[in-house]
Amino acid sequence: MNAVLTVTGLTKRFHLSARQQRLEGTRSREKIAVNDLSFEVDRGEIFGLLGPNGAGKTTTLRMLATLIRPDAGDARIDGASIVTQPEAVRAKIGFLTSELKLEEFFTPRYLYDFFAALHHVEPAVCAARREAIFARFGIHEFAETKVSNLSTGMKQKASLAISLVHDPDIVIFDEPTNGLDVLTARTVTDYLQELRAQGKTIIVSTHIFSLVEKVCDRVGVIVDGRMTACGPLAEVCAGKSLEDRFFDLYAEAVGGTA
């Protein structure tokens, strides 16, 4: 094992307002979004975090990206703690989520250079990387177009390029193909495999079984904030299709049938 990410007892609770309590149908003033989550991700693999909406996938990835702090537990990314060394963690990872948007006023080229500067990438290195990744995704065609005038697919390609501006070894993608047309989604999944071939470690959250089956080496199934299964894809599936196995795990976790 050559774990580059070690998650230990990660827990996150959210305070519920009276309105949220009504919506959730609970009297509890807090909701445990992520409950004592532990798993490891090896260097150079694609790890899939699979779960239904509201399972705690995004909260987990936000904690790993140091956007929010865990209430308990920790995670070490390439040796850096998300609790005590958030800046070091952010320097090591690339994070892409549909919630993070590009400023619509600027062009992909401007934003690429801006984020490169924030990551302290030398201008010459930045220019070389920009040239390569813009060519890979065909961004040159709209590099000088304001983000506000780009299609969803173009924005996602630009976001992807920008999230890798500092050439991180660990890349975290939250629902990377959500809302994309089939062509752009294919480009993204192909690129995940390219990144693995380059030796990068990739953590992908998704609720799309085919994406996990296609690209992931290992998978963690998360339901109600708890890890219900984690391991190599074949091991987790236990001879069933991933979809069937997921619904078994889901039923076991929530009690009853899915």
């Binding site: 990206a65 140091t66 956007l67 800046e87 070091a88 952010r90 320097a91 990872i93 994070f95 919630e99 993070l100 948007k101 590009l102 400023e103 984020f115 924030l118 990551h119 302290h120």
Partner: peptide
């Protein structure tokens, strides 16, 4: 949502 994009940089 553009502020959070900056918050995930170092």
């Amino acid at each position: 949502g553009t502020l959070a994009t900056i918050l995930v940089t170092p």
